[in-house]
Write a protein that binds this DNA or RNA. Structure first.
Lengths: 296, 296
DNA sequence: GGTCATGCATAAGTCCTCCTTATGCACGCT
DNA sequence: AGCGTGCATAAGGAGGACTTATGCATGACC
């Protein structure tokens, strides 16, 4: 026989019975019947080939062998209980949120102070990427991404529709004599003019354009295009929800009512198997409430 | 949620997988399939709400959380493995044999040297009592008792038939002119004359006596009555097998062939549940071989 | 001395946890 | 491109771990 351990279920029962010196009390602590405790102790005694308890009237006592074994077993179980209890606390301490830069910078970061006050035990760690996250290979708790929201193996919660609109600096609009209708767009430059969003926008305005100048540089982050618009360099297509503060400040304004619905949205997503993780549930509930949608 | 531990089966699997950084190797060590390891790890990760491993091509890695938890878990399991392994060695160290004084002193003690040489790792601790042993309340491994040998819950192995015969000192026999037939018994005293064995012995000799003088003291141990017989104080009824050395030495001799069979025997007995305990099996096999009977 | 409460022991039966089998997928190597 | 390897998963089975019911021994109380 190798030094394989006896069944762990029996060891666990023995540990509780030895610590409490009562099968009945051990049963209560372990959430099982006294008969199950008796049964497991008998199994362990037979397996070890030695009695561990002396059954006495109205009292249980440990044999010498039991007295030798019990504290060692309890020490091991205390290590386990401590480790797994502190693990729970430790895991609650940090929530890793991976999302694209725009969402992080414009929507989430400004609100994290509120989140922190409401959840002092959990620090949110923002990661800003746009690539696909593989939850089995990366230590990420939740992601926020745009798209259709149907990702197998993930639970998804809809946050914000992706609808963009044209925005400019009020100063620029005044400088060119105002932008009163989409036909006035010749007066200003298009920021990030190769962004395919422009095709859909002009089409929505009834002025379709066939093609964009795709030779220009890579499509920029909305935060960069928004900065250029605020600087008066032209008009940008932006998701309005990300720039509410700038709108309130008068640094950006929306001259026309045209909104282009991409039929996609921003989604909170995480693996189905983590649906019951407290810090993830808390974050989900908070962000849904913050967006003004009913929680699950 | 209380600080209840996750399922121990899952923790055990995690510990092996973390230590070996391989589900396949962990499966081999634990004697289960790789699918079972994968399943248990997934269970634990969902229960804890955190991934413990990062699945990489041709390599498993622990997450930060897993790196935190694994050494603590391994430490606990090393305590358990060490304790239960040393327990086995420790339990092999001593065998407690409870038997009546005569068997211990006359038959077993003289042979224990031989046993010790054959089993150097096990010390036999003799307890000499005649009362009933309750294995659930006393730390006794095996008992040797006389009787019918049918004791519920115990396994029994027959050792020696209880047949007694008359024995005297050769010097005493010569002093009284010899003991040639049972009718000569008037020449010597009966040692322990109130022992009921005398009724059966005289009856077996064709000279029944009706009663004994029951007013005398308690029935003595055979070792005491044998000492008196050796000292020439009279004749004693003894189990011959216990006094072979004294017979060889010429200190006792059996003048008649009369043997009275009590229809009982000396039995080795221990609880059924301990049938597989190595030190008990070893002792059983030795004592059966010593008595000249085939082992089980 | 009789009755009752308590705690452990056991048999029989149930159920669900833990596993196996079969198979898929991703990746590195050749 | 094909193959070998290691992890993942679904479906299903079995046996381990438990429950229920009951017995027994003992101490406390009247």
């Amino acid at each position: 026989m190798t030094d394989a351990l006896p069944p762990l279920a029996a060891i666990r029962v023995f540990e509780a019975a030895a610590r409490l010196l009562s099968f009945t009390k051990a049963a209560a602590e372990l959430g099982m019947t006294q008969a199950a405790v008796s049964y497991q102790v008998k199994l362990l005694e037979e397996r070890l080939g030695a009695p561990l308890f002396l059954r006495q009237p109205r009292a249980l006592a440990l044999t010498e062998a039991g007295q030798w074994l019990a504290p060692r077993t309890t020490e091991a179980f205390e290590l386990l209980r401590d480790a797994y209890s502190r693990f729970g606390e430790r895991e609650q301490a940090t929530l890793v949120v991976n999302t694209m830069h725009t969402f992080a910078a414009q929507w989430l970061a400004p609100r994290l102070g509120v989140y922190q006050l409401a959840h002092p035990k959990t620090a949110v760690q923002l990661e800003t990427t746009t690539r696909v996250v593989d939850f089995s290979r990366e230590e990420v708790d939740v992601v926020i991404r745009s798209g259709k929201g149907k990702w197998p193996g993930l639970l998804t919660y809809k946050l914000i529709d992706v609808r963009y609109t044209l925005m400019v600096s009020p100063a620029l609009a005044e400088k060119v004599g105002g932008l009163h209708r989409p036909e006035d767009m010749f007066k200003v430059d298009l920021i990030d003019p190769h962004d395919p969003w422009w095709i859909d926008w002009f089409k929505a305005c009834g002025q379709p354009i066939d093609k964009l100048n795709m030779d220009l540089g890579p499509i920029g982050l909305q935060t960069i295009t928004a900065s250029a618009a605020i600087a008066g360099r032209g008009a940008a297509l932006l998701v309005k929800e990300f720039f509410e503060q700038e709108i309130r400040d008068g640094r950006l304004y929306q001259p026309f009512d045209v909104m282009v619905d991409t039929e996609t949205a921003y989604w909170l997503a995480f693996p189905e198997g983590r649906r019951n993780v407290p810090k993830i549930k808390a974050f989900r509930d908070w962000i849904l409430a913050e967006i003004g949608q009913p929680g699950v």
